[in-house]
């Protein structure tokens, strides 16, 4: 049961959303190449997770 909760679609979604929100927060507070790269990576991470769909 614990295993299924850990690997549940909602858990994966929470990881992706959490990391993207962190990247967005950093992008809001800081300028420069790395914050922008983090933001774009957050977008791509979200898109990648959404794109896979059912395996």
């Amino acid at each position: 049961m614990l295993r299924q909760r850990f690997w549940h679609p909602f858990t994966g979604m929470a990881w992706v959303v959490g990391l993207t929100v962190i990247a967005a927060a950093v992008g809001l507070r800081h300028d420069g190449l790395l914050p922008v790269a983090g933001l774009v990576a957050g977008l791509a991470l979200t898109a990648g997770f959404a794109t896979s769909g059912s395996t």
Binding site: W7, G12, W15, V36, G38, A41, A44, G53
Partner: peptide, 26 residues
């Protein structure tokens, strides 16, 4: 830019990998 392109490519692959890994271990 080159940095954002590589970051995006890696992140896109990781996003897809997360779903595959979750499905395998569920």
């Amino acid at each position: 830019t080159p940095v954002t392109a590589v970051a995006a490519g890696v992140a896109f692959g990781l996003g897809r990998s997360l779903m595959t890994t979750s499905a395998l271990h569920f």
